[in-house]
């Protein structure tokens, strides 16, 4: 990681829940659920603060946070595509893996680990339950009947 890295969160829609944050990225159409730790760190990624600054500023929201936990969280956020590219990257060759970091953090980590759950929001056609009989299909799983094939001439249809 560059010493002067200033992680910046992506420009995305967000909604606060009780102890979580839902983030929707309209460019990638990914939705994410961030737990308290991940949400606090993501919100602190203003593109101006360095990692050292962030450790200090997050002390109140996340008592006991240290550089290692912050790095683990940033790695999670980066992997989920929630940080602007180029504003944070960690050189995995010189750093511990996430699992190593978590092991080293021991019990403190067990109560404060960042959790980021992500999904790709489907298009309307992907969200369709299935295709009805006679509808044009490409594979068996497209069809409510589970059967997609050629009746005479192409195209394939559900039958």
């Amino acid at each position: 990681m560059k010493r002067d890295a200033r992680p910046q969160r992506t420009n995305a829609l967000s909604r606060e829940l009780e102890d979580e944050l839902i983030v929707y990225d309209s460019e990638t159409h990914q939705a994410h659920s961030l737990n308290h730790t991940a949400a606090a760190v993501w919100k602190a990624c203003d593109g101006k603060s360095t990692v050292a600054d962030m450790v200090t500023s997050l002390e109140k929201a996340l008592p006991g946070i240290d550089r290692r936990l912050l790095l683990v969280t940033l790695i999670e956020l980066q992997a989920a595509g929630l940080l602007v590219k180029g504003t944070f990257s960690i050189d995995r060759g010189n750093s511990s893996s996430r699992r190593d970091m978590i092991r080293k953090m021991g019990k403190i980590a067990a109560v404060a680990l960042p959790i980021v759950i992500s999904i790709v929001v489907p298009t309307a056609s992907m969200a369709l339950s299935c295709l009805a009989l006679g509808q044009v299909c490409t594979k068996n799983s497209d069809c409510c009947s589970g059967r997609c094939g050629i009746l005479g001439l192409p195209p394939k249809v559900c039958f």
Binding site: L17, E18, E20
Partner: peptide, 20 residues
């Protein structure tokens, strides 16, 4: 969690991309 529930609903929504 509530957040998990929202994600689960989004994954089955018809117009989430158009009206996020």
């Amino acid at each position: 969690t509530t957040g998990g529930g929202v994600l689960g609903l989004l994954a089955n929504a018809l117009a989430a991309r158009e009206q996020p």
